[in-house]
């Protein structure tokens, strides 16, 4: 249970944080994350540098991501196993939501 609490306290993720964490399934630096989020969200989510810097600090402090290397001044981050668990928790939540949503739509016919 205490371990579960460690995960639950991060949920739900904001939309931006969700996309940022998904992007880090491969090691990436900040600019790479910005581009990937824009692309994977089909242009729905744009992450500004202020938002991204804040997300990186919070996620790193929580141990959800970690720096794997430094390329000049760019830090390259990757998801940790704790981050993976949080992401899994978020995805479960989203699955419930979309299931409810599609049930609702099919009832409307």
């Amino acid at each position: 249970m205490p371990e579960d609490k460690q995960i639950q306290k991060y949920l739900p993720l904001t939309e931006a944080t969700y996309y940022i964490m998904l992007a880090l399934d491969e090691p990436l630096h900040g600019y790479g994350v910005m581009q990937k989020v824009k692309q994977t969200s089909e242009g729905m989510v744009d992450v500004g540098p202020g938002t991204l810097y804040g997300a990186f600090s919070t996620l790193q402090e929580g141990g959800l991501i970690r720096m794997v290397k430094k390329e000049d001044r760019r830090k390259v981050y990757a998801l940790t196993s704790k981050g993976m668990q949080v992401l899994r928790g978020q995805i479960q939540r989203l699955q419930i939501m979309t299931k409810l949503g599609s049930d609702f739509l099919s009832r409307l016919g």
């Binding site: 904001t14 500004g48 938002t51 804040g54």
Partner: peptide
């Protein structure tokens, strides 16, 4: 090209 905002959601702006 790119967002004209440095904070792209209210949550992070609140953080600031």
């Amino acid at each position: 090209e790119g967002a004209n905002q440095i904070y792209t959601d209210p949550e992070s702006k609140i953080q600031r």
